[in-house]
Design a protein around this nucleic acid. Sequence first.
DNA 1: GATGAATGAGTTTTCATTCAT
DNA 2: CATGAATGAAAACTCATTCAT
Lengths: 221, 221, 221, 221
Amino acid sequence: MPISGVTLESPTRLERKRARNRDALVAAARRLFTRDGFEATTIAAIAEEADLGFGTFYRYFEDKTAALRAVLEEAVREIDRVLRAEDDADVPAAEALARLTDRVVRAAARNRSVFALWWEVSMHSGKSRRLGPPNTPPLPVSLAQAIEGLIARGVESGEFAPGDTALRSGFIAGAHLHVLAPPAGRHEEQDVIDALCDFELRALGVAPAQGTKDRKGRATR
Amino acid sequence: MPISGVTLESPTRLERKRARNRDALVAAARRLFTRDGFEATTIAAIAEEADLGFGTFYRYFEDKTAALRAVLEEAVREIDRVLRAEDDADVPAAEALARLTDRVVRAAARNRSVFALWWEVSMHSGKSRRLGPPNTPPLPVSLAQAIEGLIARGVESGEFAPGDTALRSGFIAGAHLHVLAPPAGRHEEQDVIDALCDFELRALGVAPAQGTKDRKGRATR
Amino acid sequence: MPISGVTLESPTRLERKRARNRDALVAAARRLFTRDGFEATTIAAIAEEADLGFGTFYRYFEDKTAALRAVLEEAVREIDRVLRAEDDADVPAAEALARLTDRVVRAAARNRSVFALWWEVSMHSGKSRRLGPPNTPPLPVSLAQAIEGLIARGVESGEFAPGDTALRSGFIAGAHLHVLAPPAGRHEEQDVIDALCDFELRALGVAPAQGTKDRKGRATR
Amino acid sequence: MPISGVTLESPTRLERKRARNRDALVAAARRLFTRDGFEATTIAAIAEEADLGFGTFYRYFEDKTAALRAVLEEAVREIDRVLRAEDDADVPAAEALARLTDRVVRAAARNRSVFALWWEVSMHSGKSRRLGPPNTPPLPVSLAQAIEGLIARGVESGEFAPGDTALRSGFIAGAHLHVLAPPAGRHEEQDVIDALCDFELRALGVAPAQGTKDRKGRATR
DNA sequence: GATGAATGAGTTTTCATTCAT
DNA sequence: CATGAATGAAAACTCATTCAT
């Protein structure tokens, strides 16, 4: 048993196993939390879904809420990735907003249930039971903030009509998140995106014609 | 003490007490459900909040879900009242939409927490746990349907730009419901309404100028 | 409102009503106790079955166990009536036993469920929960005692073979009570009685031939 | 501590503990069910009586009725063992019945309370509350069936007097089960058996003298 | 006297969490 | 480190009993 080999490789192997187990647990938790709700999901069910022993859960999470946090952190990371768009800094605000819309709708469609979970949890943050994610702002807020920046830019550049930036960004965020509403998914994703871009750009005072035409040609992205 | 008076009032007295108790329970349930969430609220807590005995709860509600239903029914009634607007049938669609927006935003502001509860509950409808109200459509759906009718009317009359009616009504419903998002209430209600009307009418292709000015004589911020 | 008439008749009328109510409650309790068991029967159910108000139950019975006692007392009275047979004192013991058998089987068939309830209750008398009837001996014991007297008489008179009187009376009581066993009622009552008389008289050493013949002709009773 | 020994014994140790716990629970349940009745026994009491934690009960039994089933299954197994007597197939029916009687009385004496519980439960089978054992026939029925076979054999061979086989087997079963009646146990077991054999064989028309004398050389009391 | 509304003690059951193996 | 057995706190729900009308 060569010490060097063991000490060098052993931690790595373990670490990989640990990571695999943790991932399995988080994935299982996401499936069950979003399907049945947080309270209705038992730890035993999560462990089973992850094909791991019952007690093993507690070797990876302090708590059931820790698992929830882990699930939500994924969603937060996803949103952060979507919202952070430094490369859009040099395109016109309208174009940047269209791109953001595209990314948001696609991400929302992909993570509908987790986003809904996040929304639900954020409603009860700071209340008696502390389920919540650590200190992330609620989804609509994050989204609205990102949009707000773009609107401010567009107003400044004269692209967008003047108006209350905060309110309008909230409205747009609301329109974006409408895709989370239950009967979602009945439209083609691309159609939703096109319509939404048209909708919000018009609302911001941008002449729609070309924008829409462009998008129809699927050229924008 | 006239006998007739006694026999006439006697049943009423009990009934009034019953009604008072029931109202107290519903109010208590609404407070706790919206504050802590449905699952986190115990029946003991509801009874205590209503200042009634524990078992008394069960004389008025079969179930915890029955109390939830009662709470939501209030909200449903409120929305129904808001969405039903026969008197708007003869005004232009744009004006009708503006009025609807006004009513919705005011109602949402008044019932923020209950509407949020409704939204939350409707996310888990059709899942393992059957919390939901009997057969009420989710809030966003009801709202979107009402809006959809107006949009269709406006498109037909030429007031609104053509486009997917269903999608656009959904976007507007989302914008409306944005007021439910946590950091709400930081704006004057009237300002929100004005901005929202401006926002959605522009999005539908209506020239905004007069509309905004008309509403309160306030200049758009 | 003539005082005399009222004071004279009023109590009687009331008493009749009271008696009627009480009877209804006892009958309802018997039906439900025997159908569902004592513990599974709620006072509300008894009152409803008796078509009386809920709280009325407590004007007639101190307790749920009081209702049980009332039900059992009926059965005890019935058994006492069946077992007391002074008029059989001057017939031969065999004939007296046959008559007793006849009466017991008919009573048991008529009161199967109450007797079973009695048996069940007597199993747990003197235990933690005091359900039991006041101080009545269990059904098998009462029955065996009555039989024991007859056997003693028959042994003394030489009709019956000698043997342990107590044990044999117990065996016969057991045979009698077999009719309480679940799949009862598949035989003609008279056939059961005939077979049982034949069985027990043989067991006691009485030549069966005539006895059986007689009974077949239905002449004995 | 040899590794092999550990790996071999390790699983067994747990299993043994599990078995011990389960046995403790069943024993506790039997004690309490028979002492206080099924309904009057709480799960907390069973767990306490078994000296185990409250929740532990539910690791071994789905339900209180599951514990009842486990208790009754013991009794059913015991009865099955007693009633199955293939080795008696070649002895005369009278002798086989005498042996069966012997076994039944001894088993009944040993399991008086459980048999009584079984009887009690079978009275309420098929009613609203489904307590009963899965699909075991009631005790008296099982017993009567076994006896019925012997009587049929004896009648065919000419040992027993002709007569209704079903009824007579029921009577004998009743006599056997009389030992379950409360004031039992005041007689020597052997005396009961002797008297019962004499009783039932006479009842079936078998000349008693030898039979009784043979059994233990004791003269009939 | 009849009634049923109010009440809370008592039971069953679930499940997060601990801990010995 | 993985596991699952043990545990009891907590919650829903029932129902006997009391009491005001």
